[in-house]
Design a protein around this nucleic acid. Structure first.
Length: 796
DNA sequence: AGCTGTGGCAGGGAGG
DNA sequence: CCTCCCTGCCAC
């Protein structure tokens, strides 16, 4: 794979090398607005005259080969890799203040005497894929002018309802465009709301009305929850069926859609991207998921769940089940219209909360707002590099082949039920190391890496300061904007380390990535040693954070803070340890798996073995409640809990949500069948179920299922049933299987008891009544000696 | 086509 | 049974 990939780079790379200019053999100015560029492989490129914009001439052909501006020989724009449009725009933005450029374009278009067109752009400007300048201008539109703040964007929200009659009650996917659209609800960020529906007009008229409204309101941004995969795809399909031209672009063009994908940590989602000329389409579904990558605290990503999570859902909000929509439309349409409006209102609030950082990021990126919103951070870092290199007329390197070898230091020293607990962590560990230890990729001959990092750090500092000042003055709106700004800097700062080890980043450097992580490990060891030497019992260390029990004479919070500050003061220059919280108790279970009991009584569980969403809900609850009992040292309560769960399972006294499991399908069905048939991967219950039920599933889809049948066999992959198929009055879930699952969950409590105590607690044997008498909790288990932390060769 | 990294645990199928 | 290997999910 990697060999193929390298070959691909070589084939697609036109101008990589020591110096870009070496490949340019000559330019010839044909007229004021035309230039011919000759490059070494013999291709001659003639520019087109783009009279409305004198700075650049870009065309499809030029994108393929390269171009030079007519009036200024200093600037070159070179194609680097197939399809990597963004690498061009880096220079486009960096050489000229693009906001001024856009002001210029806007003034031109305003003065053009063109009455037919209400878009603000000349109508002779046709929108086509290859025309980079046109595309750039139309996409950016008038939305990113100098001095703008996020609130200045005119944002419109859109949501559709379709007439879906559930036939067989399975939640199998509805295919795009199969049912008519009955309601389109719209709102904007200035308090306007509007709903159109098919009680009075036909679906075709509804679609025409939508086009009319969008063109009349002329929003800069169109927002929706799952708008790419659902609303826009659906609207487009219905328009096709009715022969309606969806002319919602600022130049009157129809949306251009192409397959794209987006990644959230380990998951990758395919979706059709919609490019609407002159506007930016923002999917709040992606914003929400991106938010949760860092936080990992949301119960789900649907609009309703997200709105509740962020506290936007109004108490009298209308809720309608997906399967009820058609029925409700026939019987009580008013309620459905209310529901539809609630959707757009919530979408607006989510976007307002989560879009600010993308907006401010766009100002420093050679991408449009829409692109910035759906792009990963590594590509953004690279854009900053490319901008600087092109500005300095320096060539760009190829990615290095290889891999990173090390990561963070993780160790558990003590297991059990421990307390009191102090949590401390190194502030911005990797960025601090990169700054203090002069990290820079070797291919970065101009040494841009440290410069970008320092600049971003300073910018963030300034933005944070401004946010604070504005807040003090009571300017909350402005303070929020500065806060969004500093958040966007933070995202980039944190992504810079990841970029070093990014396999196709052109400035990657695995050795430097390793140098960051190994330095981080050394710092972690040093931190352990310093806390230990001050009488602390270190429990767990993970990368940059440490959990420990302070010595007995450290009692108050203030003492704890002083202790952390003392250790911080002996750390290497540029490395600061911050006090990050205190807890009454904790349960240390495994690496990256523990429970924390706050002083206000709340419990936080961490780690995949304790809170994994792939497990059954009843299991997670059982563990959570059990850990509560454990923290209370309530052995009787633990036993009672076990017995009550066992009875619940035996008597089927539960709901489908309690025992169903939801899994994400990471591969396509084709990939799965190919892999299983070749023996490359084992069969999996979710894919098998999708095959059996003939569900049309895509990569990234989630299936909720349970295990049916009776008895325990070695494999259950053919015993799955869809959650919707479960019937409370005729429960057919596999009781033995779920009892076995309960016993698997009880294993989490194994380390805290003697074996015979453990088996008497987790037994419902009624012959002998259970008594907690004599059962002792194992509170402290030495798992690893801190002495083994070797710090002899720490080069400080 | 586009893509930030490593470390760690659980679960399940397959095969010895 | 046990081990191996893969996937999915999570911590940082």
């Amino acid at each position: 794979m990697s060999d193929n990939y390298q070959e691909n780079i070589n084939r697609n790379t036109l101008l990589f090398g020591k110096d870009i200019e070496e490949r340019i053999v000559g330019t010839h100015q044909i007229s004021e607005n035309k230039v011919r560029l000759y490059i070494r492989n013999g291709n001659a490129v003639e520019s087109r005259d783009e009279s409305y914009y004198p700075f650049f001439f870009l065309s499809e052909e030029m994108l393929l080969d390269g171009f030079a501006p007519a009036n200024d020989e200093k600037y070159w724009l070179i194609k680097l890799q197939g399809g990597n449009f963004y690498r061009f725009l880096a220079i486009f933005k960096s050489q000229y203040n693009y906001r001024n450029a856009l002001d210029y374009v806007a003034s031109k278009s305003r003065s053009s005497s063109d009455e037919e067109n209400d878009s603000g752009f000349p109508s002779n400007l046709t929108y086509s894929r290859g025309d980079a300048v046109t595309q750039f201008l139309l996409q950016t539109g008038k939305t990113l002018f100098k001095g703008m703040v996020f609130e200045d964007l005119y944002r419109m929200q859109l949501d559709i309802e379709t007439y879906y009659k559930p036939e067989k009650s399975t939640r199998s996917k509805v295919s795009i465009g199969s049912d008519p659209i009955i309601i389109i609800s719209l709102s904007d960020n200035r308090g306007w709301e509007h709903v159109i529906h098919t009680k009075e007009i036909s679906e075709k008229e509804l679609l025409l009305e939508l086009v009319k409204i969008i063109r009349l309101k002329d929003p800069d941004v169109i927002e929706g929850h799952n708008i790419f995969s659902f609303d826009l795809s659906y609207i487009q399909r219905r328009c096709e069926l009715h022969g309606v031209a969806l002319r919602i672009g600022r130049d009157g063009s129809e949306p251009r859609s192409y397959p794209a994908s987006i990644r959230f940590a380990e998951r990758s989602i395919d979706y059709p991207f919609f490019d609407i000329a002159g506007r930016h389409v923002i999917d709040t579904f992606f914003l929400v998921q991106n938010y949760d990558v860092a936080k990992r605290s949301m119960p789900g990503y649907g609009l309703k769940v997200a709105a509740k999570f962020f506290g936007f859902a109004s108490p009298d909000r209308t809720y309608v089940e997906y399967s009820e929509i058609a029925d409700l439309w026939d019987k009580n349409p008013e309620r459905l219209l209310d529901y539809a409006l609630d959707d757009v209102r919530e979408t607006e609030q989510i976007a307002a909360l989560l879009s600010g950082n993308n907006f401010y990021m766009t100002r420093m990126m050679p991408y449009t707002y829409a692109q910035t919103s759906r792009m990963g951070p590594a590509a953004k870092i690279e854009a900053l590099f490319v901008r600087e290199y092109l500005k300095e007329k320096h060539s760009l390197p190829k990615p290095e082949i290889g891999q990173q070898h090390t990561g963070g230091f993780t160790e558990v020293f003590l297991k059990g039920i421990l307390g009191p607990i102090v949590y401390a962590d190194v502030e911005s560990l990797y960025p601090s190391i990169m700054l203090s230890y002069d990290i820079c990729p070797k291919s970065d001959e101009r040494r841009i890496f440290p410069k970008i990092l320092t600049d971003l750090k300073d910018l963030r500092f300034e933005a944070k300061k401004s946010a604070k000042e504005e807040k003090k003055k009571g300017n909350n709106a402005l303070a929020n904007n500065y806060d969004a700004m500093q958040a966007s800097f933070k995202i980039l700062i944190n992504a810079m380390y990841g970029y070093l080890g990014f396999s196709i980043g052109i400035f990657n450097d695995y050795e430097e990535a390793d140098r960051v992580t190994t330095t981080g490990q050394e710092i972690a060891r040093r931190m352990i040693k310093e806390f230990e030497s001050r009488g602390c019992k270190v429990i767990e260390v993970d990368t940059d954070g440490i959990l420990f029990v302070p010595p007995p004479h450290i009692q108050s919070k203030k003492d704890e803070i002083n202790l952390v500050e003392e250790v911080s003061s002996v750390m290497p220059k540029g490395i600061t340890i911050g006090y990050d919280g205190r807890f009454r108790k904790m349960i240390s279970y495994l690496k990256k798996n523990y429970a924390l009991l706050d002083y206000d009584g709340t419990i936080k569980l961490k780690g995949s073995s304790l809170i994994s969403r792939s497990g059954e809900k009843f299991g997670r609850e059982f563990i959570r409640k059990g850990f509560e009992k454990l923290l209370d040292e309530d052995v009787q309560g633990l036993h009672d809990l076990y017995v009550s769960y066992k009875e619940m399972i035996l008597n089927h006294q539960w709901a489908i949500d309690d025992f169903s499991r939801t899994e994400t399908l990471k591969n396509t069905m084709e990939q799965y069948t190919a892999d299983t048939e070749s023996g490359k991967r084992p069969r999996s219950i979710t894919y098998e179920l999708a095959l059996k039920r003939n569900l049309s599933v895509n990569k990234g889809d989630r299936i909720t299922y349970y295990v049916s049948g009776s008895g325990l066999q070695s494999s259950h992959y053919d015993k799955g049933r869809l959650a919707d198929e479960w019937n409370r009055s005729k429960p057919d879930e596999n009781t033995q299987f779920y009892l076995k699952r309960l016993d698997e969950f009880t294993q989490k409590f194994l380390p805290f008891f003697k074996p015979q105590d453990f088996s008497s607690i987790f037994s419902s044997d009624t012959l002998f009544s259970f008594s907690p008498e004599g059962i002792e909790l194992i509170k402290e288990i030495r798992h690893k000696e801190t002495d083994s932390v070797d710090d002899d060769d720490i080069p400080f």
